[in-house]
Amino acid sequence: MAPRVSGNEVPGTGKGVKRSSSLGLPWWVLVFGGLGVIVLLLPIAGLVSRLEPGRVPELLFSESALVALRLSLLTALVTTVLCVLLGVPLALVLARARFPGRRLVRTLVLLPLVLPPVVGGIALLHTFGRTGLVGEGLEVLGIRIAFSTVAVVLAQTFVALPFMVLTVEGALRAEDAKYERAATGLGAGPSTVFLTVTLPVIRPALVSGTVLCFARALGEFGATIAFAGSLQGVTRTLPLEIYLQRETDPAGAVALSLLLVVIAVVIVAVAYRPKRDRTR
Rank of each mutant, 00 (worst) to 15 (best):
A76H: 01
A95N: 09
A45S: 09
A95E: 10
L104T: 14
F61Y: 13
L74Y: 13
E63S: 15
R103C: 09
I44A: 02
V56T: 14
L82T: 04
C83Q: 01
C83W: 00
P116D: 08
L60E: 02
L73Q: 07
V81Y: 02
L113V: 14
V93D: 01
L66F: 02
V67Y: 04
S64I: 13
V109Y: 05
V81H: 03
C83M: 03
V119T: 05
P112Y: 05
E63Y: 10
A91D: 03
I44N: 00
L60T: 02
R98G: 07
E63M: 09
V105Y: 04
E58C: 05
G54Q: 06
L94P: 01
R55Y: 06
P53E: 03
A76L: 02
L111E: 12
R103S: 15
L110P: 01
L69I: 12
P100V: 09
P112I: 04
A97P: 02
A76Y: 00
L94E: 06
T75E: 08
L94I: 09
V93G: 04
R70M: 07
R98N: 13
V67M: 14
R98S: 13
P53Y: 00
V84G: 02
L110N: 06
R55I: 08
V118T: 15
R96T: 12
L104I: 13
R102Y: 10
L71W: 04
L51T: 01
V118Q: 06
R102C: 10
S49I: 05
V88N: 01
R103T: 15
C83E: 04
T80V: 10
L94Y: 03
V118Y: 10
L104M: 13
L59N: 14
R102W: 08
L69N: 02
V67D: 12
F61E: 14
L66Y: 01
V67G: 08
S49G: 11
A97D: 14
L104N: 11
R102S: 14
R98I: 08
A65C: 05
C83P: 01
A45M: 10
L77W: 07
V56M: 09
F61T: 15
V48M: 13
V114S: 12
V67A: 14
V105F: 09
A97Q: 12
L85W: 09
L77H: 05
R102I: 11
A68D: 06
L104H: 10
L110C: 04
L82D: 07
L66E: 12
S72V: 01
R103I: 10
V119N: 00
A65T: 11
L59R: 13
F61C: 12
L77V: 15
G46S: 09
C83V: 05
L77T: 15
F99P: 04
L85Q: 11
L47V: 00
A91G: 07
V81K: 03
L47R: 00
R106G: 13
V84H: 08
L73A: 15
G54A: 09
R106I: 09
R55C: 05
V105M: 11
P57M: 06
V48N: 02
V119D: 00
G87W: 01
G87K: 01
P100Y: 08
T79W: 04
P89Y: 05
L73H: 03
P57D: 07
V84E: 07
G87I: 03
A95D: 09
V105T: 10
R96L: 11
L90V: 13
V109R: 04
L85I: 15
P112T: 07
V119K: 00
L74N: 11
A91V: 04
L47H: 00
C83Y: 00
A68C: 08
L90A: 15
G101C: 08
